[in-house]
Simulated assay, not measured.
Amino acid sequence: MAPIPASEKAPLGNVLVIGGCGFLGHHLVDLILESYKASVSVLDLYTTRNRRPDSDGVSYYNGDITDLSSILPVFEKTKPDVVIHTASPTAVDGAKALFKKVNVDGTKVVIEACQKSGVKALVYTSSASIISDSVNDLINADERWPVIPASAQSEYYSLTKAEAEAFVLAANRSPTCPKLLTCAIRPSGIFGPGDVQQTPGFLNAYYNGQTGFQLGSNDNLFDFTYVTNIAHAHLLAARALIYTSTLSHPLQDLEKVDGEAFLITNDSPVYFWDFARAIWKAAGNERGTEHVWVIGQSLGMGVATLLKWISWVTRKPARLTPLQVKYSCMTRYLDIGKAKKRLGYAPLVSLQDGIELAVKWAIDEKAGEGEKKSQ
Score class of each variant (00 low, 15 high):
residue 335 D to Q: 10
residue 338 K to V: 13
residue 336 I to C: 15
residue 317 P to W: 07
residue 339 A to E: 08
residue 335 D to E: 10
residue 317 P to M: 05
residue 340 K to T: 04
residue 337 G to I: 14
residue 326 K to M: 03
residue 344 G to S: 12
residue 324 Q to E: 11
residue 330 M to R: 12
residue 346 A to C: 13
residue 328 S to W: 07
residue 334 L to C: 11
residue 321 T to A: 08
residue 323 L to P: 01
residue 334 L to V: 06
residue 338 K to W: 02
residue 338 K to M: 13
residue 342 R to L: 04
residue 324 Q to D: 01
residue 325 V to H: 02
residue 331 T to A: 15
residue 346 A to L: 15
residue 321 T to S: 12
residue 338 K to H: 09
residue 328 S to Q: 12
residue 325 V to C: 03
residue 323 L to G: 04
residue 344 G to K: 14
residue 332 R to T: 09
residue 323 L to D: 03
residue 342 R to E: 13
residue 329 C to L: 06
residue 337 G to T: 15
residue 316 K to P: 02
residue 346 A to H: 14
residue 317 P to Y: 00
residue 343 L to G: 07
residue 334 L to D: 05
residue 335 D to M: 12
residue 339 A to G: 10
residue 327 Y to R: 15
residue 334 L to T: 03
residue 333 Y to Q: 07
residue 342 R to W: 07
residue 329 C to R: 03
residue 320 L to S: 02
residue 317 P to S: 10
residue 332 R to N: 04
residue 339 A to S: 12
residue 323 L to V: 12
residue 339 A to V: 14
residue 343 L to V: 05
residue 324 Q to Y: 07
residue 317 P to H: 09
residue 323 L to T: 07
residue 330 M to D: 04
residue 343 L to C: 07
residue 346 A to D: 14
residue 321 T to W: 05
residue 327 Y to P: 00
residue 319 R to T: 04
residue 320 L to E: 01
residue 338 K to G: 08
residue 322 P to A: 11
residue 318 A to L: 01
residue 330 M to T: 11
residue 345 Y to A: 10
residue 336 I to F: 10
residue 345 Y to K: 09
residue 344 G to I: 11
residue 328 S to M: 12
residue 326 K to T: 05
residue 334 L to R: 06
residue 323 L to Q: 07
residue 341 K to Y: 04
residue 316 K to G: 00
residue 342 R to Y: 10
residue 321 T to Q: 06
residue 316 K to I: 10
residue 336 I to H: 06
residue 345 Y to V: 13
residue 324 Q to I: 05
residue 320 L to T: 02
residue 334 L to W: 04
residue 317 P to L: 08
residue 343 L to K: 08
residue 323 L to N: 05
residue 326 K to H: 00
residue 332 R to E: 01
residue 318 A to P: 01
residue 340 K to A: 01
residue 340 K to V: 11
residue 329 C to E: 02
residue 340 K to N: 02
residue 328 S to A: 13
residue 320 L to W: 02
residue 325 V to E: 03
residue 337 G to N: 12
residue 326 K to V: 03
residue 346 A to G: 10
residue 331 T to D: 10
residue 333 Y to G: 00
residue 341 K to T: 15
residue 339 A to P: 06
residue 325 V to A: 03
residue 325 V to F: 05
residue 335 D to L: 10
residue 329 C to P: 04
residue 334 L to Y: 12
residue 346 A to S: 15
residue 343 L to Q: 06
residue 319 R to C: 02
residue 341 K to P: 05
residue 329 C to D: 06
residue 330 M to G: 05
residue 340 K to Y: 00
residue 322 P to S: 11
residue 341 K to C: 13
residue 320 L to Y: 01
residue 337 G to Q: 09
residue 322 P to R: 05
residue 342 R to S: 06
residue 332 R to V: 00
residue 330 M to V: 07
residue 316 K to D: 00
residue 327 Y to G: 12
residue 332 R to L: 09
residue 320 L to M: 11
residue 336 I to E: 06
residue 323 L to K: 04
residue 329 C to W: 02
residue 342 R to T: 14
residue 317 P to Q: 03
residue 318 A to F: 01
residue 327 Y to K: 13
residue 323 L to C: 08
residue 328 S to D: 05
residue 336 I to L: 11
residue 344 G to W: 11
residue 337 G to H: 06
